[in-house]
Design a binder for these strands. Structure first.
Length: 473
DNA sequence: TTTTGAGTTGTTCGA
DNA sequence: GTCGAACAACTCAAA
């Protein structure tokens, strides 16, 4: 008699329904985490996520061991690893919290492979199950407002539950990997210095981040969230991504005027996951297939390098890309500007940008990353009209008016007056000299002529319409 | 049943 | 300098 609890994107003790359900039973229980880089459809973690995963798993293992339990580590395709382990420990019941999209497809295979061992699954990482929020035709919503209205008309998200006071005893003599065997953290070279200084992965770090957000900036969230230099966002995204905090905990922790806005951002997270559940290949294919015909440019490697490393010559774009490279995270507003620059100004396929974000973001998840890239590119759901092309200068001036954000991440421009901080090429020579800026030397000239690039992108999207009209005729 | 209006995140142009 | 219109196409719900 034993239980098996399979932990995945839910690396927490508190408000963890699968863990709580197993803990309510007295039998010996085995907690396992599987590094699955083999199951088709599941994307292997990017480098920044691997760094995070190392500490999240190690932290959870330490928390479990403080309660007399342990976390067994296994590696391989889940449909092999889980049934093998279940058989080895003689599990008569298997628990997990549900995944979505390809995760759900893999889980179904595991359930079949477990044959007669009963499986109990739980809703843990989304506020609303995809099956619970559908339009009148029983299909997934394609517009956020209607989606969120429908969600609000149903029962409110449940209250979060505290961690179980005590855990059932471990199953004896179960072998497992050491986390070091997985080589998740970079060694040659170790590029994780600035990331390490920015984040504390794990449930304890998530709690601290939440408390700091509630104390310092939750009330400013509604007015300041769009200003990357204000640091008014919660920065909880990687903790949510690895399930070190549940959306229910955040939902119920916020109150007051900004609560609705914060919850609505959780709503976008829900919407992305529901969309992934309906379009599991969202990271590979345009949600709207009409845009398969878009004439993306074959990007110059030099241009891609400039974009990735923050050397495009547009200060707000470069600040964002450097924040990403250095810290594994980028402010949401700046993600949109940087993504718009790649897909519209350089006319580069959104999948190339998505892949870079996947590799470098600590919070990249299979739903939100491709969903938001498709949203910006205009190939997904149509709340975003394609002619809505961000002007990197105007966006910088509007959302970083004093240039605080640019000065932080593009120090070679720090001495420029605010008037020119977002368009150094427009500054008079003596202003540049006084600020120590030599364009083309200390800071690059702009990689694109935004006005011409905008016209080219508009034209590319208009061709799609013409093609479609020609087809209907 | 049909029509109408609104819809996360914008920019440009011309009056 | 400010302001309104125009820039597609489609989803969804209210009238």
């Amino acid at each position: 008699m034993a239980n098996l609890v399979w932990l995945r994107d839910d690396l927490r003790l508190a408000d963890n329904p699968a863990l709580a359900a197993a803990s309510a039973r007295a039998e010996p229980t085995c907690f396992v985490y599987v590094l699955d880089e083999e199951s088709p459809g599941l994307r292997p973690f990017g480098a920044a996520q691997r760094w995070w995963l190392h500490y999240a798993v190690a932290g959870l293992a330490a928390d479990l061991s403080r309660k007399g339990q342990r976390l067994v580590l296994r590696r391989g395709a889940a449909a092999k690893v889980i049934p093998t382990l279940a058989a080895a420990i003689g599990a008569d019941r298997v628990f997990w919290n549900r995944r979505y999209g390809h995760g759900a497809i893999v889980d179904e295979k595991v359930r079949l492979a477990l044959r007669r061992r009963p499986v109990e699954t739980f809703s843990a990482n989304l506020l609303f199950e995809p099956s619970a929020i559908q339009n009148d035709e029983g299909k997934p919503f394609r517009a956020f407002s209607a989606f969120w209205r429908r969600a609000a008309s149903g029962p409110a998200p449940r209250q979060p539950r505290p961690s179980p006071r005590r855990l059932p005893p471990p199953v004896q003599d179960v072998s497992g990997d050491q986390i070091e065997d997985w080589r998740l953290i970079p060694t040659a070279p170790d590029w994780s210095g600035r990331i390490r200084g920015t984040w504390q992965p794990g449930e304890r770090g998530a709690r601290k981040r939440l408390a700091a957000f509630i104390a310092a900036s939750a009330s400013r969230y509604a007015t300041e969230r769009d200003r990357p230099g204000s640091f008014a966002t919660s920065m909880l995204s990687p903790h949510l991504r690895f399930g070190e905090i549940s959306p229910h905990q955040l939902w119920h922790a916020v109150e007051g005027a900004a609560a609705g806005k914060i919850r609505s951002e959780l709503g976008w997270r829900e919407f992305a996951w529901h969309t992934l559940d309906a379009f599991p290949d969202m990271a590979k294919r345009n949600i709207n297939q009409a845009f398969d015909a878009l004439p993306w440019e074959e990007p110059y490697e030099d241009d891609m390098w400039a974009w990735r490393r923050g050397r495009t010559g547009f200060p707000i774009v470069d600040a964002g890309m450097r924040q990403l490279w250095q810290t594994g995270w980028m402010h949401n507003r700046v993600r949109m500007i940087a993504a718009s620059f790649l897909t519209k100004d350089l006319l580069v396929d959104w999948r190339l940008g998505e892949a870079w974000f996947w590799d470098t973001l600590v919070d990249a998840d299979p739903a939100n990353n491709p969903f938001n890239w498709q949203w910006v590119a205009g190939t997904g759901l149509h709340a975003q009209p394609f002619f809505r092309i961000f002007n990197p200068v105007l966006q910088g001036e509007r959302f970083d008016p004093d240039g605080a954000y640019v000065r932080t991440y593009v120090p070679e421009l720090a001495a420029l007056p605010a008037k020119y901080i977002h368009k150094p090429w427009a500054a008079p020579e003596h202003v540049l000299t006084r600020a120590g800026v030599r364009l083309g030397e200390t800071y690059p000239l702009p990689l694109a002529d935004h006005s011409a690039a905008r016209a080219r992108a508009l034209n590319a999207f208009l061709q799609i319409r013409q093609k479609r009209n020609a087809q209907t005729l």
